[in-house]
Design a protein around this nucleic acid. Sequence first.
RNA 1: AGAGGAAUGGCAGAGUGGUCGAAUGCGGCGGUCUUGAAAACCGUUGUACCGCGAGGUACCGGGGGUUCGAAUCCCUCUUCCUCUGCCA
Length: 423
Amino acid sequence: MLLVNQIRENFETILAGLQKRNFPNAETILQEVIQLDDQRKSSQTQRDQIQAESNSISKQIGMLMKEGKREEAEHAKARTAEIKSQIKELDEENSQAEESLKALLYTIPNVPHASVPVGKAAEDNEVVLEHGSIPTLSDDKLPHWELIKKYDIIDFDLGVKITGAGFPVYKGKGARLQRALINFFLDEAIAAGYYEVQPPILVNEDSGYGTGQLPDKEGQMYHATADNLYLIPTAEVPITNLYRDVILSEEELPVKNVGHTPCFRREAGSWGAHVRGLNRLHQFDKVEIVQITHPDKSYEVLEEMSQHVQGLLKKLELPYRVLRLCGGDMGFTSALTFDMEVFSAAQERWLEVSSVSNFETYQSNRLKLRFKGADKKTQLAHSLNGSALALPRIVAAILENNQTPEGINMPKVLHPYLGFDKI
RNA sequence: AGAGGAAUGGCAGAGUGGUCGAAUGCGGCGGUCUUGAAAACCGUUGUACCGCGAGGUACCGGGGGUUCGAAUCCCUCUUCCUCUGCCA
């Protein structure tokens, strides 16, 4: 969430940023934030003062008792009764102001970076670059949902039987392709200096709040209510929360972590004709990279992460493009996001396979993720993450783009991981 | 899952109702000494909020309670340890 002091100091800039996101009533809401914070401050000042008085009386009572001055002590006790009720009142006022302030701050998205284009929806995203050539396929080309049946490598019907729609069963070479991709992505990340972690895939409420899935996207996560745990929608959640309530030392930056996890998304209300096959699933695998950086370095690192993801796509020989998301299409917590899309040649569609974002201090403020610099001051770090990569759409594109009458050719780079070169 | 024990500052570990934000040791940082280092000695060493400042307030696993006053007493939750049971 945003920092109140930032809102106070850069009111106009933040207002303009929120407007770029098409965030309604931004001005009123920002003013309300400041007002609530003023309330909070004044009630706390009062409370602290009266508490100080009470503390000093209590100390006096202690001394009087020691000296055996019973009567004077009793007299002092009488005075504290009044103070006590006042404290209770101010306490309530204070915590109420704090609560409403926090609740309001939770509803405000991150301020977009200056380079974020104005826009309402996906059409307004800026195409930064395109790479690779789109393959020309024969007229009898098949979309991946046909190919997986033809070669019997992914079975949606079996998934429906044991779980439900959107939970495919990968079989034979399909399963091996999954495993190959995961290992390839992990190895590439490790070679790029990332440290591998294997986090839990269920997280508690605090973690959900830490990275911003709660309270904003409550309905998008599977909720194990018996234990009040959430299935992760992305490894970003557990991996970034590793650093919740942590004060790093500056030398430890940047922290570079990578992890593979399954991801679970309810995708409530987002199904339609265009999400056939692997295009949208409730469960899928993803390798996620997360970095925690010094605020001065985060945009440099964002570029580095973008290059890393592009490197993977190049090695997989997939045509891709990079988008700079516009204000209206960006995630709630992000300041700047690049999406990578691959071209899936039978569907003739671009598919989002990665999203690389800089959250600046938006997450770290919630997480209380700080670092101590050479000047011994603690300050909030910047957090970033990106998919490197999400599997299903990569699989879709590999299958579609490389289909031939003799079978589907696997990208060279995967051969050692697969143990075969063709499906 | 049942029985018992425990949770204190970066770590170890005192503290069982008042002057305790908390002894002591280790570690860290600064200094003295030294050609340099070690040792020794001296000093310093948590986080957040409020306040222009002086300073104040909160925090001893989380939440609640008793009390004029809680690290200390009570309730509750969580986590860890030991034993028993179960189990990949």
